[in-house]
Amino acid sequence: MHDRTPSTAKLTDTERLNRLRLIRSDNVGPRTFASLLRHFGNAASALERLPELARRGGASGPGRICSAEDASAELAACRKAGVSLVAPDEAHYPPRLATIDDAPPLLGVRGALDALTRPMIAIVGSRNASGAGLKFAGTLARDLGDAGFVVISGLARGIDQAAHRATVASGTVAVLAGGHDKIYPPEHEDLLAALLAQGAAISEMPLGHVPRARDFPRRNRLISGAALGVVIVEAAHRSGSLITARMAAEQGREVFAVPGSPIDPRAAGTNDLIKQGATLVTEAADIITAVAPIMERPIMLSAREDDEPLDFATDAPERERIVSLLGPSPISLDDLIRMSDASPAVVRAVLLELELAGKLERHGGGLVSMI
């Protein structure tokens, strides 16, 4: 059971090196990377233009551009660690992950890489899960594995590790918040080593990157993005698992929730999700039935913000008008275009320049704000 025919596209060594330089340069995130690549045609041309674009965005000095030496050293370290850096149109890049609008331009993958092209279901939940929650997560994961699905999760304590442990034999994917050599929590290094035989580990972070608090929501978008749907087993109010559920909904993924006792705070978040329309799950069949029609449809790239053209030929008054509408409160791109009376291509170009200058922050749902 495969999610699609694996791609035969392959980057040249030079283009892979230049793409790595581009994504490792200051203020270049996945969306900005995609816009630059589309506008300039290749990573080398985009790298040449970075200083000028950042200056136009009001950068006080030249931002750091990753050198060819640093990128070469990272590629060599990856090879030594058994990590491949793959682009969205290459084999072994999870096909559904490639469709999200902030897909990592290069994803570090290792393990039994065929697992990454099989259909995935995410199982996530509380770190301090109940015994019943842990047992149910394991049963659910095992049944999904037996049905041919790969279970994907975040290698965290609690529900995540229960789902991984139950599917070591059938194939499971761990999404890391740090580099491949900085496993968190460290006591799960044995679990990771065991699951690599039939499954895989993925990360967008460079080797040596120790995960910080803000890296976990970034990781969560990869868990939901690679999957057909996300199952939340236990989650208190305002938990990381609910962030994953929100991202899944934004990405057009199915959201499943396991009901729990109304007097257990660990079930408060999942019970709320069910009230909001998440599919109630009591067995693997509930999930398999719901995703069957999705698996029959071809995997489509959604229309993405970075598909739109950029127009850097803007005059000073127009640029000032766009910048004056921005502030610390997030505003949508559509509102910016309407209020500034500028073309979408010009507004996108100005936002890109501001981002490269380190002055703009992007939020979910197409919102932006000044830093």
Rank of each mutant, 00 (worst) to 15 (best):
I294W: 10
K10S: 13
K275M: 10
N271T: 04
L273P: 13
A132D: 02
H363M: 13
L352Q: 15
V230E: 01
E318C: 15
I100V: 02
T289G: 06
A349S: 02
S126C: 05
T99R: 00
V368M: 09
Q276M: 09
M1K: 00
A156G: 04
T172E: 09
R79K: 10
F216G: 03
N27F: 06
A73C: 05
P309C: 13
R110L: 14
A236W: 05
I152D: 07
G178H: 02
M370H: 02
S25C: 01
A98L: 05
I223M: 04
P88V: 01
L50F: 04
P211E: 05
I299E: 01
R218E: 02
E52P: 05
T289R: 12
G240Y: 00
E355L: 02
L113W: 12
H237E: 15
P298H: 09
F136Y: 15
K80A: 11
D307F: 00
I243V: 07
A197R: 10
E283A: 14
L242H: 15
Q198T: 11
L107G: 02
L354C: 05
R56L: 01
G131D: 03
D3N: 09
E48F: 00
R56I: 09
D146P: 07
L352F: 01
I294P: 08
D3T: 12
A193V: 11
L351K: 14
G111L: 07
